[in-house]
Amino acid sequence: MSLSKSVTPYQRALIVGAGPGLGASLARAFSVDCGMRVAIAARRREPLEAIAAATGAVPLVADVSSVAAVEALFDAAELALGGPPDVVVYNASQRVRGAFAEVDAEAVARAVDVTAIAAFRVAQQAVRRMLPERHGAVFFTGASAGVKGYAQSAAFAMGKFALRGLAQSMARELSPQGIHVAHFVIDGSIRPVGAPNDGKDTQLDADAIATSYVHLLSQPRNAWSWEIEVRPWVEHF
């Protein structure tokens, strides 16, 4: 899916947690449709190569499990993009499934760190660079697990609830300072890359989700959204 050329007040984007699904669609939308310079980051370089080749995005390998690593990522992104990113999307998460009485506590802690604590690290570095200009956007990819906890999915619920709370707190503090903070509730399964549409639109399409991110980037500041839900028309909620 290709958007018509979109005009946003932003020039440089960093997508953390990029992969072949939504991350690739966001890179395509930001670079091709919005004309932004884009950097994409993940723990391994291999998933980034195809996205970079298709979109012109700059691939960056990063582990966001420490403040020092996140600072290094932003330094690399600023160098690659010709300036600090004025759009940052946190798209990473980690799931641990299992019966509550049996799930491994250390695995849960790691999952919550990836889904929420690392989001804080990334957002803090982004905001520190945006505040001097009183301009920027920080977007978080959430899930329905952030508004309702599912059985045998405590770790994901903990992480996504925390992510939503982080976004809401940031929006209340930073919107009046010119930084657009938004949380996206992705309610439903995203159709796997390469899988055909069943003709009934029962799954989310990654390119279609990306249009909502672009829409929020295009919002005038007198009508900003801090949260948006997207779901297939047949999804129960």
Score class of each variant (00 low, 15 high):
residue 62 A to Y: 02
residue 158 M to H: 10
residue 182 A to R: 11
residue 172 R to P: 00
residue 225 S to Q: 14
residue 81 L to R: 04
residue 117 I to E: 12
residue 230 V to F: 01
residue 91 N to W: 03
residue 6 S to Y: 08
residue 112 V to M: 13
residue 176 P to T: 13
residue 80 A to R: 03
residue 112 V to W: 04
residue 137 A to M: 13
residue 176 P to K: 13
residue 232 P to S: 06
residue 17 G to S: 07
residue 145 A to T: 04
residue 87 V to Y: 02
residue 51 I to R: 04
residue 26 L to P: 02
residue 235 E to H: 00
residue 105 A to D: 11
residue 14 L to W: 02
residue 220 P to F: 12
residue 106 E to I: 09
residue 206 A to M: 03
residue 18 A to F: 10
residue 140 F to L: 11
residue 96 V to C: 11
residue 4 S to I: 07
residue 159 G to K: 08
residue 214 V to K: 06
residue 203 Q to D: 01
residue 139 F to L: 15
residue 153 S to E: 15
residue 199 G to H: 09
residue 164 R to L: 10
residue 207 D to F: 01
residue 132 P to F: 05
residue 45 R to K: 14
residue 104 D to Y: 08
residue 215 H to I: 08
residue 201 D to G: 06
residue 108 V to P: 09
residue 89 V to M: 06
residue 108 V to F: 08
residue 82 G to T: 08
residue 105 A to N: 10
residue 87 V to K: 05
residue 61 V to D: 01
residue 177 Q to Y: 05
residue 156 F to A: 06
residue 105 A to C: 10
residue 143 A to H: 01
residue 67 V to G: 03
residue 34 C to T: 07
residue 60 L to F: 02
residue 102 E to V: 08
residue 73 L to G: 00
residue 70 V to C: 01
residue 136 G to Q: 12
residue 59 P to D: 02
residue 20 P to I: 10
residue 140 F to Q: 09
residue 12 R to A: 05
residue 236 H to Y: 09
residue 13 A to W: 04
residue 4 S to C: 08
residue 164 R to V: 05
residue 140 F to Y: 14
residue 233 W to G: 12
residue 178 G to A: 06
residue 113 D to W: 03
residue 171 A to V: 07
residue 229 E to H: 03
residue 46 E to K: 09
residue 62 A to E: 02
residue 23 G to R: 04
residue 224 W to G: 06
residue 47 P to N: 03
residue 211 T to W: 00
residue 123 A to M: 11
residue 79 L to I: 09
residue 171 A to S: 14
residue 48 L to V: 02
residue 116 A to Q: 13
residue 182 A to K: 07
residue 153 S to W: 09
residue 163 L to P: 05
residue 121 R to C: 10
residue 38 V to C: 07
residue 122 V to K: 07
residue 195 A to Q: 06
residue 68 A to D: 11
residue 190 I to S: 00
residue 179 I to Q: 09
residue 125 Q to S: 15
residue 101 A to W: 12
residue 144 S to F: 07
residue 227 E to F: 08
residue 116 A to S: 14
residue 215 H to D: 15
residue 237 F to R: 13
